[in-house]
Amino acid sequence: MKHLSDQELMAVVQGGDYSPASEIYDRYSARIYNFAFRFLKNAEAAEDAVQEVFVKMLRHANQFHGDAKLSTWLFSITANWCRDYLRKADNKAKESDDVLVTLPAPNELSPERNLEMRENEVRVRKALEALTPEQREAILLSRYQGLSYAEIAQIAGCSEGAVKTRVFRAMETLKKALTGRDSGGDRCLNAIS
């Protein structure tokens, strides 16, 4: 199975054979879990999201078109699930759950760098929490999943321009939170030749 492409694996699933499910899960579960975990700020919900996404992938395999990227399709399902989760009134209160993540300390790093990373981790998590769900979705897909604006637009169901605006506004907020530097306004009047 490992030598088969995503499209080939999905073709097998579309034929009614679920045996590639495990391989597809191994390829994408970490990315989906991390996206959902950071989007929802809730480990339990992220676990539910991963399970639901892969079950939906199997049940609705015929909706996947071979010319698309499997990652984009899976992130579309994940983002929809996460948005539904947040839309439910009960879950909004859960957003503030203080879930602490214990990171494994990489051995090769100095204690100072380890400490710095841990502090940064907390700061980034808090900064991401300050974003709107739309901005958070866009920045998570762009920064941490490396998706293009076109792919994010497809996932978010909006235009590329809207994605650009969301990422820009998200970065403005993150920049202020992480570096303390606010946008200086339009101080520069240089013309571009």
Binding site: N34, V50, Q51, F54, V55, N120, V124, R125, L178
Partner: peptide, 28 residues
């Protein structure tokens, strides 16, 4: 700088039970 700091957000490992749950839910 912000972009670099964001890189310090560590990857979280998916608990092994999630795969088991998925395979069970999928009947595999």
């Amino acid at each position: 700088d912000s972009w670099a700091i964001m890189g310090d957000l560590a990857e979280v490992e998916v608990p092994a039970r999630v795969k088991q749950r998925f395979l069970e839910a999928a009947g595999i």
